[in-house]
Design a protein around this nucleic acid. Structure first.
Lengths: 164, 164, 164, 164
DNA sequence: TTTT
DNA sequence: TTTT
């Protein structure tokens, strides 16, 4: 009915890019979102939100964001469940991103990364990155055979999970 | 940093009202949020989002919403984890509501419920509900001794979990 | 960069449906959104937010919502300006809706309205409305020649204003 | 009822700090929010959203943000109106910020600014700024007598406009 | 110019 | 009246 999420935070690890059997790119990453308030002990805690992004933005995310990058996500909350290795039902809540916004200058976000397709950065930042030629998707293994195999993620992700 | 969620959906069950050891009210409920799009099979699926609300709004929610009620939630995403009975870490993502909006006329939402405190409905709907006197919190057991004991919820919820 | 608005409120008037010269439908309406807090005098005020919706949802809005209807809007804030009749620049801020949610049962929202295209209501409410046959767009004049001519709205709205 | 806005953009000018007759700080600023899509001519346009923030955050904004700073705003849409110098009613839509997030390292955002109160930046960035001593509110004139006098802003802003 |  |  209505379902909207907006987050700004930092990636806890490099994003994880996979492909569905049909070759559709999906990237998973976790955003650490620092709370604006402190707890009883005066510490500023964080929430760790799992995010998914599909298609072209998945590849942009994989190519321009890494552990520590500051990013914004605009999307919707999605729930799903699967049975883990000992047959226990696990419930997952994650954010399916409609849009991922890169909030740091290119240099900060992707020093030593290859280049991929169109830059998601604005006019001002384009053309000032280093160019490694067009080794597209450099450093990422295509895992069509085995998408989402690690990290307790469901093994049976398929093209049916495409949001639209 | 930034963390905002807005949902509109229907309660999957009556809300669950508890109290912390210090007597602070907390209500838990799940919103079924129908997707605006259909899946490959043409079905309209739903996401089931766990929500928490504290203090006075917790009591309003418990008194005016029930299974099937249409409600809006404005809040933030929060993650936490606990170890289940067989020592397995369980990760929970839920929405901590800053504001819960009742989106149905009072009659539809709370036919046979007792009355509690100030009405969260607008001017136009106040004073037209039935009045059961002031049997506050009628039908809810105070569970100070054992908050959040059921449903696989962590047993050690305390006043430290208050959002502010 | 990031721009997200979510509103729930009531239409202050019947929506206003127009068509661009190319025949693209646009609906304008104002949502009265009651504040959740009261002012110094203890009154609950409202904000009046202008909204725009394009294409198929424009026609759904025109056919299913009317003055007083409860609706949710998920969209983005947009600014534009135009010069009024005495050459004064007027600045407009409005919400371009990606999605409009009807939050009342069909009967409440459109008693005496004709029917148009696919119902935007869920399964449960479909097929229970009166049926006027298929007099599409009944009661609305096509105004291709003169879109947005009244109400101090800019007269030069064109297909360029399409959000995507 | 429900009214939520989240924006990320850049300040078009230095923020404008004023005080109500009672001494409550208010800051006004405009965020340029670049659209994520391009128009028919292939240009990326922007929306210019007026924002207001009250109290302590008003002073933080004035001290840490300036023209060009990247910032996030989480708030609600508010409308008001006033009569301009030639008696014409002007309608204003603006965002009242509950929270303003500084999205750039301190150095980028406030090179040559004085210091004020508690730093709104996280642990990592604290203590690495230059220190000008405690010339609080340096460079800003207190304008209790005449808040909001310029820029076509209503002259009669008062403590009644406090959001809570 | 505003809704319940 | 607009930012990078």
């Amino acid at each position: 009915m209505m379902n909207r999420v907006v987050l700004v935070g930092r990636l806890t690890k490099d994003p994880d890019l996979r492909y569905t059997p049909n070759g559709v790119p999906v990237a998973n990453f976790t955003l650490a979102v620092n709370r604006t308030f402190t707890n009883q002990q005066g510490e500023r805690e964080a929430d760790f939100i799992n995010c998914v992004v599909w298609r072209r933005q998945a590849e942009n995310v994989a190519n321009y964001l890494k552990k520590g990058s500051l990013a914004g996500v605009d999307g919707r909350l999605q729930t799903r469940s699967y049975d883990d290795q000992d047959g226990k039902r696990v419930y997952v809540t994650e954010v399916v991103a409609d849009n991922v916004q890169f909030l740091e200058p290119r240099s900060a976000a992707s020093q030593d990364r290859g280049n991929f397709g169109e830059s998601p950065f604005g006019e001002g930042q384009r053309n000032q990155g280093s160019s490694y030629g067009d080794q597209r998707n450099q450093g990422y293994t295509r895992t069509d055979e085995d998408p989402f195999s690690n990290d307790g993620q469901p093994i049976d992700i398929s093209d049916d999970d495409l949001p639209f």
